[in-house]
Amino acid sequence: MTAKLFTPLEAGALRLRNRVVMAPLTRNRATPDGAVPGPLAPDYYGQRAGFGLIISEGTQISQQGQGYASTPGIFSTAQVEGWQPVTEAVHARGGTIVAQIWHVGRVSHTSLQAGGAAPVAPSALRAESKTYDGTGFVPVSEPRALGIDEIPKVLADYARAARNARAAGFDGVEIHGANGYLIDQFLRPSANVRTDAYGGSVENRTRFLEEVVETVAGAIGADRVGLRLSPFSPANGVVVDETASETFARGIERIAPYGLAFLHMVEGTTGGSRDLPAGASIEALRTLFPGVYIANNGYDRETAITAVETGRADAVAFGRLAISNPDLAERLHLGAPLNEPDRATFYGGGAAGYIDYPTLEAASA
């Protein structure tokens, strides 16, 4: 009998051939000038079309939203055209792919901003974090607080990015609300000390999240929109405090009525421990969302199968293993050995560690 992990799934308008999901993975291989996907990107994503769903690497909604060198955007005509061969390669092999749309907020550097401007954030609080400026990892720059009159422009950038993603051939988008980036910054008291309608109370701190979801859903239809959150992850300098469970519960309650295609959550610390703070519960948050739930963080074959069989998750996303195993869904299905990822080639570079990991078929040949 086939484990449920390897069976099809409908997530809104998205049709997944299986429930093995490729998590969004920053690879820093876009063109340095123009932030256009590089020439190897169609091969990279096309090789991974056997995943039930591919979530693209984080793709900035504007230059202001860029936080790392050589990451792709989805706000210019050249970028849209650069993504088209990628989505065509995935669709030619029967795959489904969404673009993760991303604004990093304060996790940026002046060298990446137009005119050397300061990054923007909910509040003028610098993150205890580093970014990649094209030469190495450097401390992020001091941000300035977004004016309340600037927020509608940021929302419009999200809507434009979603429409551009569809124009580029993506089946939908995932809103990046996780890992200490802009939406997550609004949610956290450690990054948001505003005294206006976007700060202070839980209701105010969850306002921007709902407005982004409403805006993007209105642009392309909620059934083609997913959302990623990391409720208990201290990524990029945000603090997981005693308000986290209440904040994220209210945030999920606010977005639940929109009918999104899926909710995708990092369970624990991004790329690290699955341990949660005392009293915290992923299951409690998951029950507040009526749609498809994608689990993420530290899963292997057995734990993924169990999570889906028991209904704790509808699908499971894999990160590092998706880098080194382009045919991960098949390998997991067969219980086959896995390629080990080469961390030295994760960020930047060329074909090595990007499109040269062997498939089972190639390895046997």
Rank of each mutant, 00 (worst) to 15 (best):
A217D: 08
A217T: 10
G218F: 04
A219T: 10
A222W: 02
D223H: 08
D223Q: 12
R224Q: 14
V225D: 12
V225Y: 10
G226I: 05
G226V: 05
R228V: 07
R228Y: 09
S230L: 11
P231G: 14
F232C: 12
F232Q: 12
S233A: 15
S233R: 15
S233N: 15
P234G: 14
A235M: 14
A235E: 14
G237K: 08
G237I: 10
G237S: 07
G237L: 07
G237P: 07
V239W: 02
V239Q: 11
V239A: 11
V239P: 03
V240R: 05
V240M: 07
D241Q: 06
D241T: 08
E242T: 14
E242W: 10
T243Q: 14
T243W: 07
A244K: 06
A244Q: 08
A244W: 06
E246R: 12
E246C: 05
T247G: 06
F248L: 11
R250I: 03
G251D: 13
I252D: 04
R254D: 13
I255N: 10
A256H: 11
P257K: 11
P257R: 12
A261Y: 07
F262V: 02
L263K: 04
L263V: 05
H264R: 09
H264G: 10
H264A: 07
V266I: 15
T269I: 12
T269S: 12
T270I: 06
S273M: 10
R274Y: 05
R274W: 05
D275V: 12
L276S: 15
L276P: 15
L276G: 15
P277S: 11
A278K: 12
A278S: 13
G279T: 14
G279F: 13
I282L: 06
A284L: 05
A284T: 11
A284H: 06
L285R: 04
L285N: 07
R286Y: 08
T287V: 13
T287W: 08
L288C: 03
L288W: 06
F289Y: 15
F289A: 11
P290T: 04
P290K: 02
G291C: 07
Y293S: 06
Y293I: 06
Y293G: 06
N297K: 10
N297W: 08
N297I: 11
G298I: 09
G298W: 03
Y299C: 06
Y299H: 09
Y299K: 03
D300Y: 00
D300M: 00
D300V: 00
R301E: 00
T306E: 15
T306V: 05
T306M: 09
T306R: 14
A307G: 08
A307N: 09
V308I: 00
E309K: 00
T310M: 01
T310V: 03
G311E: 04
G311K: 02
D314C: 06
A315D: 08
V316P: 01
V316W: 02
V316Y: 03
F318V: 00
G319P: 08
G319W: 12
R320T: 13
A322E: 02
A322Y: 02
I323K: 00
S324F: 01
N325W: 00
P326A: 01
L328R: 03
L328M: 02
L328F: 06
L328D: 04
A329I: 04
A329G: 12
R331N: 04
R331C: 02
L332Y: 01
L334E: 13
L334Q: 13
A336F: 00
L338Q: 00
